[in-house]
Amino acid sequence: MFKLKNWKEVPIGGAVDQPGSAMENKTGSWRVERPVWNSEKCIHCLRCWVYCPDMSVNTLDGKITGINYDYCKGCGICAQVCPEKVKAITMQPEQ
């Protein structure tokens, strides 16, 4: 967890003066189930990347490279939209 600041340290009026500062808040800790991606089954259709409501499906040069567990909240949409005949993503309980 990042450190919560006191009232003298935060910008006034709730202004967020650092773009992209949400990156500091690693929301992956909310997850109950984690998507597990199987690189051998994946056909790189990118449907999971399109549907992910966060930006937690990592890609490189148009190919899936994995899941970003720092921010993935485990909603399961990626597993749901993965084509029926592929099913490269499965949801598994967090330990």
Binding site: K5, N6, W7, V10, I12, G13, G14, V16
Partner: peptide, 13 residues
């Protein structure tokens, strides 16, 4: 400006 500010910061503001 005007973003959500819940239990962890509202009172600081």
């Amino acid at each position: 400006l005007g973003s959500l500010d819940l239990q962890d910061y509202y009172i600081e503001h």
